[in-house]
């Protein structure tokens, strides 16, 4: 019914204490490098290096990574199929043109574009997952404050963050009770049970919000939450490793720019 949050894994990650800026630069830089790469090999190399870092340095379970990629991969398969079918160009292996303005085909250029987009998806998602699995949200709040994100947005984000865990615990309890009473036995019953679950959670969230107002007033809230973030120094070894990673993958992106699968 609900999914495991990557946040829980990030708190247990062996890279938890590494400098937050280094981890964000690594993940975000990897995403930009994947998008800039004209060939498909560099994004795959980015994905391979970051996955190894996640498994061997951050000590993330391999089966967890499989779960993380399952939902995005479904969207990727649908969308890449569409890109391959509409792209056209080059040698054509199959074509269907039901209207003068609409044609579906499988061509050499189409397959190559599909492979490039899929490789960028794998590399980019791995960059995102690297940040998600090594950096808890509380560390990111400190970074947001340093980047001068408006206080209202950070405060709102912190309350949403806190509420997620509170609401999730409630959802698990209500859902468990509904399942035990065969609340999801038929489609019609499922709709009603799901709506009752959402309604009950909305009301309890609202009541939690009212409690929070009282708690904030009692603690003299003056329009800005305190953000406690530790300033860890950046380790020279990790800086050297990140620099080597970008030089290596950047060089591969340049030298393999013209390499295609077909």
């Amino acid at each position: 019914m609900y999914e495991e949050l990557l946040e829980d894994i990030a708190h247990k990650s062996a890279l938890r204490e590494t400098h937050t800026g280094v981890k964000i630069v690594t993940g975000a830089g990897a995403i930009i490098l994947c998008l800039l790469s004209p060939g498909f090999l560099a994004p795959l190399l980015v994905a391979a290096v970051l996955l190894m870092a996640l498994v061997f340095l951050a000590r993330v379970d391999v089966s967890t990574l499989g779960h993380v990629y399952a939902a995005p991969a479904l969207f990727a398969v649908f969308s890449v199929s569409a890109i391959v079918l509409v792209a056209g160009g080059g040698e054509t292996f199959w074509q269907w043109q039901p209207a003068p303005w609409f044609s579906l085909s499988v061509s050499r250029a189409g397959i190559n574009q599909g492979v490039l987009v899929f490789a960028r998806f794998i590399g980019g998602t791995t960059g995102l997952v690297f940040i998600a699995l090594t950096t808890p949200m509380t560390d990111l709040f400190s970074v947001m404050r340093r980047l001068r994100v408006p206080d209202e947005v950070i405060d709102l984000a912190m309350i949403i963050y806190r509420t997620i865990f509170m609401v999730m615990a409630h959802v698990v309890q209500v859902y468990g009770a509904q399942v035990m009473r065969l609340g999801y036995s038929t489609f019609r019953e499922s709709l009603h049970s799901f709506a009752r679950l959402c309604g009950a959670v909305f009301i309890s969230s609202w009541e939690a919000g009212e409690d929070l107002i009282r708690a904030m007033e009692a603690r003299c809230y003056a329009g800005k939450f305190a953000v406690l973030g530790k300033d860890r120094p950046a380790d020279p070894l990790s800086l050297a490793a990140v620099a080597t990673f970008f030089v290596l993958t950047g060089a591969v992106a340049v030298t393999t720019a013209d390499v295609t699968l077909f």
Partner: peptide, 18 residues
């Protein structure tokens, strides 16, 4: 603010439910 916050949390949970 807290009411918007809990609504945001609710939307997050709602969008992660199947």
């Amino acid at each position: 603010l807290p009411l918007l916050g809990v609504t945001g949390g609710f939307i997050f949970i709602l969008s992660s439910l199947k």
